[in-house]
Simulated assay, not measured.
Amino acid sequence: MRGFTTTRPGRLAVAAVAAAIGVVAAGGIADAQGTGTPRETTAPATAGCPGDGHLDTNYVCTSLSGGGLFHRKYTNDVISTWYTKTGGSAITAKLGFSASGKTHWGGSFTESSGQTKTANWSGTGVAYCTLTVGLISVAGQGMFQTPQATGC
């Protein structure tokens, strides 16, 4: 499966909406103050997402053809984005999130089917009530994102 595509409305439409409300960086990319270091973690029970992509308050996901992209804000300034790969060829990617016009990226990694990679941030100044979007940039395939995580 090379077509790393979303199963919901196209990523360009989602990106256009996010850009219109100011959650996707319009200029350069700002690095997170947290480590943003990807690491392998235990996979969630399923990589699938509900139709609207909202799992809970400030917990969202997007189903992609090769797995699921998840994004969660836990408290003020503690944010995670992770990708669970359920099929297809190995990918090289990086995880990130956007908030208030700034994009924060973790380091690059390679991921194979059956793995979950996670990037965590703290120290970015993002409040719990700030709108955020989880991101994955896959080499040769483009960028994909979650719906907005909102909680207030």
Rank of each mutant, 00 (worst) to 15 (best):
Y74I: 11
A30N: 15
D31P: 15
V133K: 03
N76A: 04
A90K: 13
A18F: 00
G101C: 06
E40R: 15
N76D: 14
D77P: 11
H54P: 10
K94M: 13
S137Q: 09
G151F: 01
N120C: 06
G87Y: 00
D56H: 12
I91K: 02
N120Q: 11
F4I: 12
T103L: 04
S98Y: 01
T46H: 04
V126Q: 07
A127H: 10
M143T: 14
F144Q: 02
L95F: 06
N120T: 14
S65Q: 04
R8M: 07
G28I: 12
S98F: 00
H104S: 11
R72G: 11
G36A: 09
T6Q: 01
G22D: 03
C152P: 06
M143R: 07
A26W: 02
A26K: 12
T7H: 00
G87M: 02
T6D: 04
A43F: 08
T37C: 04
V17P: 00
K73L: 10
A19E: 05
T116M: 05
T130F: 00
V23S: 03
H54Q: 14
A43I: 10
G51H: 08
E40D: 13
A30R: 15
K94F: 09
R11F: 03
G53R: 11
G27F: 03
G34F: 11
A26R: 12
K73M: 09
T124N: 12
T35W: 07
T6C: 06
V133M: 09
T118D: 11
T41D: 15
L95R: 06
M1C: 08
P38V: 15
N76F: 01
T132Y: 03
V138D: 01
L135M: 14
Y74T: 10
A13K: 12
G48I: 11
I136L: 07
V24F: 02
G96N: 04
V138S: 01
S122I: 09
P38K: 08
N120H: 12
Y74Q: 03
M1E: 08
I91C: 00
T146F: 00
V17S: 08
G114R: 12
K94H: 13
G151C: 13
I91A: 00
S65T: 14
A90P: 13
H54T: 15
S63K: 14
A90R: 12
F144Y: 06
D77Q: 04
T41I: 15
W105C: 10
A149R: 01
N58T: 14
Q145V: 04
A45V: 14
K117L: 07
C152N: 01
S80N: 12
C152I: 03
T81C: 05
T75A: 05
H104R: 14
L12H: 04
A99Q: 05
H54K: 13
F109P: 09
V60E: 14
S80L: 05
H104C: 09
T132I: 08
G107V: 06
T57L: 12
Q115T: 10
M143A: 08
S112E: 02
G114D: 10
G101Y: 01
I21F: 08
P38T: 14
T150S: 01
V60T: 15
G67I: 01
V17E: 03
G101I: 06
I21E: 03
A15D: 02
